[in-house]
């Protein structure tokens, strides 16, 4: 059913996102060139490519993070749930709630562990103690952090280790019940043990969420994703099953990049 979007690849699940003719610009500079892709739902899609290839620009388009950049301009369509997320009727705040994001550097609020997670609910007007307590616990459990922090929820989030802070950010994103989780280099500031925990978590998340992850670490893409997109100079060079990309990529340039013989 996705063949129109992913010509070389037939994913197991239908698309959460359908992207057509996507061009992105920062002022005069074109960052994405005619990207067309279907991102399968409840599955992990990894985006790889050298620095400046457009993969971060691309993932930021998916929840309109680039709107905040004044010189940014976009052409083409991003359909999420068959709605163009860039159309005028769409509420950006709602889109960002449904499509959560975790960044390279953990960025907890300078509040308590508890309040970091309750925050998203409070701004939605939910203040009932038992509802908040329940969501905080459930979110922390889903983020595999509960056992480590359950006895110190009132402590500052910034007292946690880097890996714990990153899982807290994931818990915070989960708390508002998104449909998609976007990860932009979520482990690049973490040690291997913390990285392994986040990766396990990502594999767990794909049961309930559509996951898209941008990573510089190709082994990470290989470990966590079902399909991988390779970007180069703003173009999507290849989108294929991750096993295919790492054993027998269809495109020669992909081969050169993943075997380290690029450029």
């Amino acid at each position: 059913m996705n063949s129109a979007f992913n010509p070389a690849y037939n994913p197991a699940s239908g698309p959460a996102f359908k992207i057509e003719g996507l061009n992105a610009f920062y002022g005069p500079k074109q960052a994405l060139k005619n990207v067309g892709i279907g991102i399968p739902q409840k599955s992990v899609t990894a985006l790889i490519g050298p620095s400046g290839c457009g993969k971060s620009t691309f993932i930021r388009c998916l929840n309109r993070m680039n709107d905040l950049i004044p010189v940014f301009r976009l052409e083409g369509k991003i359909l999420f749930d068959d709605t163009d997320i860039y159309s005028k009727e769409v509420d950006v705040i709602d889109i960002r709630r449904r499509i959560g994001m975790v960044f390279q550097k953990p960025n907890p609020f300078p509040k308590s562990i508890y309040e970091n997670i309750a925050y998203g609910l409070r701004i939605q007007g939910i203040n009932k103690r038992d509802v908040l307590d329940g969501t905080v616990e459930e979110s922390l459990r889903k983020a595999a952090l509960w056992d480590e922090v359950s006895d110190r929820l009132k402590e500052p989030a910034l007292s946690l280790s880097g890996g714990q802070q990153q899982r807290l950010c994931i818990a915070r994103a989960i708390a508002v019940e998104p449909e998609v989780m976007l990860f932009d280099e979520p482990c690049s500031a973490l040690d291997p043990t913390a990285t392994a925990k986040i990766e396990d978590l990502i594999l767990e998340l794909k049961k309930d969420y559509t996951v898209v992850i941008v990573t510089h670490n190709m082994q990470q893409a290989a470990r966590v994703s079902t399909q991988t997109g390779f970007f180069l100079l703003g173009e999507l060079i290849e989108f294929n099953g991750t096993d295919r990309i790492f054993t027998n990529p269809a495109n020669k340039v992909t081969e050169e990049y993943i075997t380290g013989r690029f450029g």
Binding site: Q219, F246, T247, N248, P249, T254, E255, I258, T259
Partner: peptide
């Protein structure tokens, strides 16, 4: 070296 693609093959 974690070989990939043609190197792995």
């Amino acid at each position: 070296r974690q070989p990939k693609a043609s190197d792995l093959r």
